[in-house]
Amino acid sequence: MRVDVWGVRGSIPAPGPTTNRYGGNTPCVSVIDTKGHLCVIDMGTGIVPLGTALLQKSLPVRDDFGAGKGNATVLLSHGHWDHIQGFPFFAPVFIPGTKLSIFGNARTADRVEALLEGQMNPQFSPIYTLKNLGATIRFEGVREHQCFRVSDLEVSSMELPHGETSVLSFQIKEQGKTLIYASDAGYSASGAPDDVVEFYRDADVLIHDSTYTPEEQELRRNRGLSSYLDAAAVAARAGVGKLVLFHYDQDHSDDIVDENVRLCGQELERLGAGRTEVVGAFEGMQIDI
């Protein structure tokens, strides 16, 4: 599978020269399987450039999105703004014929639909309602530990704590390779529960929340996000191949992220997990697993 990163920022888009290298768009990652099916994880503003790339045919996807033949799966970790705010500006949704299956963090399909319908309300959006979009959209509510198949991908979900609410982490497997997406994970101060570590076990790539420095985490543990130390700890315990830091604080400049990535690497060494490689996710990053 091929993984492309389109948005890496938490909370709110952070434009400006200090975020040019890692990027200021909110979370969006795409996974293209060996059959060329497109699976999108989260719909932050990063989904806008993904939409542009699909219309420009610059990705190895099977379907012609520009011709209204696009078919994509979307996995939503949760409904906070930074994970859905790009949706009304994702170009393929305006093209009649496009098919989207959106799997969301809710008990029922209706709730996933209501989440996105509320975003299109005419008070807030000139689209007025999802019914005005060209795309045909199917919704699915995803429960914890649910397994389902997306084209050639085997997807499993796990609920992670996120402040007073929860988010879904996704495990995506194809041909013996595993990707984990764990944005907005916020464990207690004692670290990730054992079943979460097992869910991440031996993953080839773990895309993990790393919003804070340890100092910031001290003050903000109740917000339900991770520091790079939290990310290093869980990556070391789970023995993952590559840790990709993700969901950076909106106030962290590229230089701060550089430093956090370096210190995360040091922490992995200290934990005896030197084999685990650490990189900072950036817009335009491509990983072939």
Binding site: P13, A14, P17, T19, N20, G24
Partner: peptide
């Protein structure tokens, strides 16, 4: 307008 656009092209 419309939505925030981070990146070099809007610095």
């Amino acid at each position: 307008g419309s939505f925030p656009v981070p990146g070099k092209q809007t610095n």
